[in-house]
Nucleic acid binder design. Structure first.
Lengths: 147, 147
DNA sequence: TTACTTGCAAAGCCTTTGCAGTAAA
DNA sequence: TTTACTGCAAAGGCTTTGCAAGTAA
């Protein structure tokens, strides 16, 4: 999972190929944005990437970073870390439950999943700190939105 | 899990008590905001609640709804549906993994959890539509941020 | 050359905040 | 009465968009 020197190279190669396949032009900015992201051990925001990037390409603009990340994500080249939209959604507090989200209509449904609630967390997680909540987000297309 | 007439009443009673315990004043707006949320089967946004609320309290303002929801959430009376912050975070696509988030420093760590990856989804979920991804978000306070 | 990308600037959306008036305790 | 809460208006942060100039193919 952590990026190593050679895994970056492999990733970049795969990336270039995927761009070609998708008909995306390989610009200097795109390559650097992808490389920067692939090098990141954390999960940077657009702005964090932008700040790093400016060291290499002083003229890049923040909007290009945004646009590029959106483009990459829409082609499945990168992921936006699981988030439910820019708008916050609320619920009254109740029993432990999880969420099912339709990526088309954005409807959010609750569901229960005891298997997960009762499962022991991996050791790496247990030693990370104090755990407060565990919640699964399952996403897909709901029946109403399927063709 | 779906709210029923009497469970609302129970919830409102518990809510009023919790407000008193927390030293929060019971205003008309707060009660109605809470009731509206408790009645919701979906997970409304502040704006959705506001639009409904205006039917009952025409003078209510959107900022009050925001402020009230924030207050409620900070007292644990309601939940903000799992989201990682207002800023989007990105990562290159790689193997199935999950996220560990420190609610203090907001650092996001990847981890693997085969138990969940391999577990069968509950039946209710399986019949919901087409599933694309399942991802666990575990939150808490990481060791570095613990006292 | 042609169509896609970029940088710039401005707008957009969601949310927060300062302030003065209002209402709960 | 006292202090917290509300509504208003304005600002703030993150993200998107229109447009003209630039560049990959």
């Amino acid at each position: 999972m952590p990026p190593t020197a050679e895994s970056i190279e492999k990733r970049l190669a795969a990336f270039e190929q995927a761009c070609r396949a998708a008909g995306l032009r390989l610009t200097h900015q795109r390559l650097e944005i992808y490389r920067q992201l692939a090098l990141s051990r954390n999960h940077p925001t657009a702005e964090a990437l932008y700040l790093e990037l400016r060291k290499k390409i002083p003229t890049v603009s923040l909007d290009t970073v945004y646009r590029t990340l959106t483009t990459f994500a829409s082609h499945g080249l990168i992921n936006k870390v699981e988030t439910i939209e820019s708008q916050a959604h609320f619920e009254v507090t109740h029993e432990q439950h999880h969420h099912l989200i339709c990526s088309r209509c954005k409807e959010i449904i609750d569901f229960e999943w005891r298997t997960v609630d009762d499962a022991d967390l991996p050791e790496a997680v247990a030693s990370w700190g104090r755990i407060d909540t565990r919640s699964v987000v399952v996403s897909g297309i709901c029946r109403k939105c399927l063709p």
